[in-house]
């Protein structure tokens, strides 16, 4: 493999959605960066806050309606009307979680702890917290700070830095 001439030094990852797949996209990207020795900061905002809120972080769901990429086990299309039946969303979400466990993908809190153990930093968005009436004490204890957008951008400076919106 050709060595990148200007390797990444820092990534700032923004997670604004609270479905399993959106949150895990941010967590996998973040943990992957930490594993590579890249300085990593994740900023959770809007529904992404669910991933770092004590009450909700252990029970994230995936949406079962309006997702044309959703398939039944076996590959047949997943009818949107099926997705509206009570319990289907929970069942699909549980299935997704068990599939991830098989691949050694940890639950949300453990994943966050892995990122933190490697030196990654987790932040929450002040504006979204005000909107959802959340306080710092409602968040996972590993959240480093509640930030305004401006404060987050101040952390995103420097050469070889990328801001990634998942």
């Amino acid at each position: 493999m050709v060595k990148e001439e200007h390797p990444l030094k820092k990534v700032c990852i923004i997670c604004a959605k609270g479905t399993i797949e959106d949150v895990y996209a941010a967590l996998v990207m973040s943990n992957g960066a930490v594993m590579e020795g890249i300085e990593t900061k994740i900023f959770f905002t809007f529904f992404g806050l669910d991933a770092i809120t004590k009450k909700t972080m252990h029970s994230l769901h995936t949406g079962t309606t309006g997702n044309p990429a959703m398939r039944m086990p076996g590959g047949l299309p997943f009818p949107t009307l099926l997705g509206i039946i009570p319990g289907v969303e929970a069942g699909v979400s549980a299935m997704m979680r068990s599939q991830m466990e098989k691949l050694d993908i940890p639950p949300v809190q453990e994943f966050l702890e892995m990122i933190e153990a490697g030196g990654g930093e987790v932040y929450a968005c002040k504006l979204a917290m005000d909107m959802f009436k959340l306080e710092k004490k409602d968040l996972w204890d590993g959240v480093k700070e509640v930030l305004t957008v401006g404060q987050f951008y101040e952390m995103c400076g420097g050469l070889q830095t990328q801001v990634i919106f998942t």
Binding site: N31, M35, E36, G37, L103, D104, P106, E110, E113, M114, A117, G118, G119
Partner: peptide, 29 residues
């Protein structure tokens, strides 16, 4: 078996923070 940071952390030998400490930067690699 697949090698992940998590599997090292669950090995009972060392936790993940300790693993990063032993091989600073990119521990798995």
């Amino acid at each position: 078996e697949a090698l992940t940071i998590r599997s090292v952390g669950n090995s009972g030998i060392i936790d993940i923070k300790g693993f990063y400490g032993l091989f600073p930067g990119a521990p798995m690699k």
